[in-house]
Simulated scan of single mutants.
Amino acid sequence: MDATKLRRAIARTPLAPVAAFPKRFARVARHDAKVLRASARWLVTSREHHNYTYELTKLSRHHLTWFVSVVCDIPVQQVRGYVAEIESDDALRHHIEQATATAARRGLADRKVRYARRVGWYAIVRATHPAHVVETGVDKGLGTCVLASALLRNAQEGHPGRVTSLDINPEAGYLARVAPWSEVVDLVIGDSIASIGALDRPVDLFLHDSDHSRAHEKREFDAVEPTLAPGAILLTDNVTSTNVLAEHAERTGRRFLAYRESPVNHWYPGDGIGVAW
């Protein structure tokens, strides 16, 4: 009996799990060894303790550009142009590197600039020209700078806009406190639900990236709903953990899509973008 026929014969017997164990064990060991290597490298080379930054795999970048293309109904080549635009913005990159290096919290931040899924935020803002963006959860302000950079580009093309950035931490947003990015940023310190209720103009694009509990995410989307402009876009950074935005989209008659990123050489599995429009 040749090897193939023998394997097939064993597969039909109670011995099948025992025979397959070495191969299964080898696959698990290879996977775990890769994760352990990435984890050990990160522990030695990175200072980050949350809001991890990383590059995306080539395939994940392709999927992100198509995701934005579908949501914004624009050619994928146009999205790729927007992604190239933010990644080639040397002034922004240099600012983030220098601001990180001199910040009081520099011991918990990496100087290397890695936008990951945030280039998707940038492309959406560039494609839709929102007059008013609201983001909840600012932390260092990396995402705020990305949003502000897109708004500044839009303004150069005749589509001005501003971003209202909400965070409960008074130290948040230090990357976005320098011109020209700060010129289109309104940083509001306080509870996000109360701050949303105090907004004085319609919201064209809303991004949830604050307290990632299901209850708080739902409260934010419920709170912002009355303030939304016609055709507003809702984004969540919590889509890999909850179905809150999908449920909100269904209740309010919107479409919903989700994208999950894949980091390069990182132990963290990545986050994603959920969008309702």
Rank of each mutant, 00 (worst) to 15 (best):
D2Y: 09
A3E: 14
R7M: 13
P14A: 08
L15Y: 13
R24K: 14
R24P: 02
A29S: 13
R30C: 10
D32W: 11
A33N: 14
A38M: 10
S39T: 15
R47F: 06
R47L: 09
H50L: 13
Y52G: 08
Y54Q: 07
K58M: 02
L64W: 00
L64K: 00
W66G: 15
S69F: 01
V76K: 00
V76Q: 01
Q77G: 05
Q78R: 10
V79Q: 01
R80D: 00
R80H: 02
G81F: 00
V83W: 00
A84W: 01
I86S: 02
E87H: 02
D89S: 09
D90R: 15
D90E: 15
A91G: 11
L92I: 08
L92R: 06
H94F: 12
Q98L: 13
T102R: 15
R106E: 08
V113F: 00
R114W: 04
A116F: 07
R117W: 11
W121P: 02
I124D: 01
A131N: 13
A131G: 15
A131K: 12
E135D: 03
T136K: 03
T136F: 01
V138T: 08
V138Q: 04
K140A: 14
G141C: 04
L142W: 07
L142G: 05
G143C: 06
G143V: 06
T144G: 11
V146Y: 10
L147P: 04
N154G: 07
E157Q: 14
G158H: 03
G158W: 06
P160M: 04
P160A: 10
G161A: 07
T164A: 03
S165T: 12
N169S: 13
P170N: 03
Y174K: 03
A179R: 14
W181A: 04
V184H: 06
D191A: 01
D191N: 11
S192H: 03
I193N: 03
I196W: 00
G197Q: 05
G197E: 07
L199S: 09
D200Q: 14
R201G: 09
P202E: 13
P202I: 09
V203R: 08
H212Y: 05
S213Q: 10
R214Y: 08
R214E: 15
A215R: 14
K218F: 11
E220P: 03
D222H: 07
A223H: 01
A223K: 05
G231H: 08
G231M: 11
T236M: 06
T242V: 13
N243S: 12
V244D: 08
V244P: 06
R251N: 05
G253P: 12
F256Q: 02
L257Y: 10
L257F: 12
A258S: 13
E261K: 03
S262T: 15
S262N: 09
V264W: 04
Y268K: 07
D271F: 11
G272P: 05
G274S: 03
V275T: 07
W277Y: 11
